[in-house]
Design a protein around this nucleic acid. Structure first.
Lengths: 111, 111
DNA sequence: AGTCACATGCAACCAAAGGTTGCGAAAGGA
DNA sequence: TCCTTTCGCAACCTTTGGTTGCATGTGACT
């Protein structure tokens, strides 16, 4: 089963956009991210804390600013788990579709 | 971009398990679901309201109970959007990996 | 050195959402 | 009829995403 902490980390829309921006720019700061987002720097800082605890980003202080970068291996791992979930649902939907088709088939043969 | 209402509907772990149970059993009631979940019937009822507003389930009153079933088309649509997101992230990770490999390559050629 | 600007961290506060308990009402079975 | 079951509604608690306000530390510019 999927790690719920990982899912909840990437389940928030703002955090997804943050990861996207960090990947696009190759890292960034809380202030820099908040410039490109409709929320305040403090909200961004809290989200970075969540992502950090989930291991999806790492931070290093550099002078007066703190730079965050995405842990690509960890994100790849999270994406794999997401894919597992969607695949499982896909298989279940397919199975249900096959069953209902079989029932329809039988109905037509024995009305 | 993904529909955030759909994502938030399937983003909650309890709602994911509910959808899973409904698919496995071919539908169910709030009380029946709460028997198989670690939350109360009222919590389940609220979640069913969210899923209903997102169009992922439909309900029909039947005697003293109300039966819920999954809208398979709608769920399939949601799964497709999830897949789109994971694919987009996958592509971005691949691109970054290629870039960093190219940089490494250049470093080795010109140290 | 001295000051000014800027990025951060911390605290208090607010609103929405997931969860709980409690209660009253409608439908089925003894 | 009476009892059980299932539901729906309301009040309340806790967590979480978001805000404003303030103090601190670091870089930059005269």
């Amino acid at each position: 089963m999927i790690d719920d902490e990982l899912w909840s980390a990437i389940g928030d829309p703002t955090r997804r956009r943050m990861l996207d921006l960090l990947l696009a720019d190759g890292g960034g700061t809380a202030t820099g991210l908040s410039d490109q987002l409709p929320v305040t720097r403090q909200a961004v800082a809290k989200h970075l804390g969540v992502l950090d605890r989930a291991g999806l980003v790492h931070s290093t202080p550099s002078g007066r600013e703190r730079r965050y970068t995405v842990d690509e291996n960890r994100l790849a791992h999270a994406i794999n788990q997401l894919t597992d979930v969607t695949d499982a649902w896909d298989r279940r939907l397919q199975r249900i579709k096959r069953i209902s088709e079989a029932i329809e088939q039988r109905k037509r043969q024995q009305p």
